[in-house]
């Protein structure tokens, strides 16, 4: 187990290092002079030079890369050119919205998908199954941002249950905060729940056809007992993989959904960064997003090993 975890950790750390090189290269090397790029065509050479000094762009490329990585490791993400504040502070502020949103959506998606997927597998080939499969088929096809607009239309404009956007801040209390995140979380969760339910259903159906289910039935377990006691845990192994992959979709989705609801999260920050050519912000936030995906991959790998005893010793 420890060996497996160490190997995965090393491999993912390598991925992280390569990812940082890629991001650094795209943002700081390809444009030539980032300072000139950020200021646009009309900037005077003096301002460009000043900004260059400001951003620490004077050194060689490897030295700058090391300084950037070293800074991030110690929590120094650089200073935003437009906001004139440390990017770390900006990110910390925005994470208070984005992280709860992604977690909220993940929880909703899992809570919806599990019973639905199990029900469909248990009622395989019957009307319930066809109904669920049809509904999830539709759920997958709906773009989350469009679904978000429809939710706003119904639950914020026609029925004044929720606000159409904005975030009161957690200072206003837990409930107003959660309420503001509810429609965005539903919009994010439903398409993902559809995918998850379908994966769970097909994984369950596949495990239900395994020999050990027949063995369990020969021991006297009922269909339901065999499903709960044996099929479910085995089916969770492929479901975990999907759950890990879904995190990156949720993260990307959250960035887009924040735009629909005007939520002050990482997504708004990064799009403002792009429009204002604030490369420091773009660079650091993308690195953070990639780090989050890789960290979740690692957690999923660990969960995988915990769920599957065959992995603990092998590899």
């Amino acid at each position: 187990m420890l060996r497996y975890a160490t190997l995965r950790f090393l491999s993912l750390t390598l991925s992280l290092i390569v990812a940082s090189v890629v991001i650094f290269a795209v943002i700081e090397v390809i444009p030539g002079d980032p300072a000139a790029f950020m200021l646009g065509m009309n900037a005077s050479p003096d301002t460009v030079a000043a900004l260059r000094a400001d951003l620490g762009l004077e050194g060689s490329v490897p030295a700058r890369y090391l300084a950037w990585v070293g800074g991030m490791l110690t929590g120094d993400f650089g200073t935003s050119y437009t906001y004139r504040v440390p990017v770390a502070d900006l990110v910390a502020e925005r994470l208070k919205v984005s992280l709860p949103l992604a977690a909220y959506a993940l929880a909703l998606s899992t809570l919806i998908a599990m019973p639905v997927g199990i029900l469909a597998a248990a009622r395989r080939g019957r009307a319930t199954d066809y109904g669920i499969m049809g509904a999830t088929q539709l759920g997958i096809a709906v773009p989350n941002f469009w679904f978000a607009m429809l939710l706003v239309l119904v639950f914020a404009i026609n029925l004044p249950w929720f606000s159409a956007g904005g975030f009161p801040g957690w200072e206003a209390g837990l409930w107003p905060g959660l309420k503001a995140l509810t429609l965005p979380a539903i919009a994010l969760a439903l398409p993902q729940a559809s995918i998850l339910a379908r994966v769970l259903r097909s994984a369950l159906i596949e495990t239900l056809e395994q020999d050990y289910i027949r063995t369990a039935r020969a021991k006297g377990l009922s269909r339901g007992q065999a499903l709960r006691g044996h099929a479910l845990r085995n089916a969770l192994i492929p479901v975990l993989t999907i759950l890990g992959l879904q995190f990156s979709f949720l993260l990307a989705g959250a960035i887009i959904i924040e735009n629909v609801f005007f939520l002050p999260g990482l997504g708004r920050l990064i799009f403002q960064g792009i429009t204002q050519r604030d490369l420091v912000v773009v660079e650091s936030v993308t690195m953070l997003l990639v780090f989050a995906v890789i960290a979740v991959t690692f957690l999923v790998d660990l969960a995988y090993a915990a769920a599957d005893p065959r992995l603990r010793r092998r590899r």
Binding site: A19, I23, V26, T297
Partner: peptide, 22 residues
């Protein structure tokens, strides 16, 4: 395979953000 892992860490949106930024 490791290259695959690496690309999986970049959701399409992040790649698009990087390209667009530059």
């Amino acid at each position: 395979m490791r290259g695959n892992d690496l690309v999986f860490a970049f959701p399409s949106l992040v790649i698009a953000i990087l390209i667009t930024a530059v």
